[in-house]
Amino acid sequence: MLLKLLHYLILLQMFFILSKTLHFLLMPLLWVLVLLLLAIFLKSPRKKKVCLAAGAGLLLLLSNPFLANEAWRAWEVEATPVSEINNYDAALILTGVTGYREDLPDRILTHKGADRFLHPLQLYRMNKVNLFVVTGGNSSVLLDNIPEAEQIERILLMGGVPEEDILTESNSRNTRENALHTAELLKKHPEWKRLLLVTSAFHMRRSLACFQKAGVEVTPFSTDFYASPRRFTPDETIIPDAGAFSGWHLLIHEIAGYLIYKILGYC
């Protein structure tokens, strides 16, 4: 039994490290830099030209704001009007939007994506959801940080939410574990029938599939949108944008994660 547990922990750590490595390898900036370096150091003039053209073309393509926005629009799960949300027993909040610094222990830092807990807090204040289930552990490989679920719990408590209306699950280190551990927690509360799954719009496809695989029936409620309405102004169609370029990294990483989860049978 102990050996099986040790084997599981080793596999878990390897999967976590592999995920972080993949995040680096799927960085479009890395691809462009590699192509440009090859254009400098390759001896063949023909190969130099091919690498230079490929690097420049990739840079122009991925920095185009219109193409980036179209990709986001195609991938993100669309928003549900607040007016359509009513009488949910719990909002299941996925973490990944907070940070912690040991030199600033007196506060919780938030990143883009804080809508993951702000929007359900709005629904709670409107009496559309009764309580929160926050799932997410420590996202760092090396540092022993405060679990992200506990960080969001602190924010909700500061926002006036009673402690009895917040349940946390702080062992998960990826989306699959979010679903599995939450499913175990929910077995203790069979009276909770209507559940709202809250995460970023780009992350909703994988999250929803994982929760369904774990046997948890939920209604998706997307937040934290990267896509925007189509606008045909020069700055949003033809002028290169560094934000569009960096956004591709997140989108490519998420699509790759979804495909890997599908292959492994996680969702």
Rank of each mutant, 00 (worst) to 15 (best):
A79Q: 11
A79V: 10
A79P: 09
T80Q: 08
T80F: 04
T80C: 01
T80R: 13
T80S: 03
P81M: 09
P81N: 12
P81Q: 06
V82Q: 04
S83A: 12
S83Q: 10
S83F: 02
S83G: 00
E84S: 14
E84W: 06
I85R: 15
I85N: 13
N86C: 00
N86G: 00
N86Q: 05
N86K: 10
N86W: 00
N87F: 11
N87Y: 07
N87E: 15
N87G: 09
Y88W: 00
Y88E: 01
Y88H: 08
D89L: 07
D89Y: 01
D89N: 07
D89W: 05
A90R: 11
A90C: 08
A91D: 05
A91K: 15
A91P: 03
A91T: 11
L92Q: 05
L92I: 15
I93A: 02
I93W: 00
I93S: 03
L94V: 13
L94F: 08
T95R: 11
T95W: 11
T95P: 05
G96F: 11
G96T: 14
G96C: 11
G96N: 02
V97W: 06
V97E: 05
V97K: 08
V97L: 11
T98G: 04
G99L: 15
G99Q: 14
G99Y: 09
G99M: 09
Y100I: 08
Y100N: 14
Y100R: 13
Y100D: 12
Y100S: 15
R101V: 03
R101P: 00
R101I: 01
R101A: 04
E102I: 06
E102V: 10
E102T: 11
E102P: 01
E102M: 08
D103K: 11
D103N: 12
L104I: 02
L104Q: 10
L104H: 07
L104Y: 04
P105I: 04
D106E: 14
D106K: 05
D106R: 05
D106V: 00
D106S: 01
D106I: 00
D106H: 12
R107E: 14
R107F: 03
R107H: 06
I108R: 10
I108P: 11
L109N: 15
L109G: 13
L109I: 15
T110G: 04
T110H: 10
H111N: 13
H111C: 09
H111V: 07
H111R: 12
H111T: 10
K112W: 07
K112S: 06
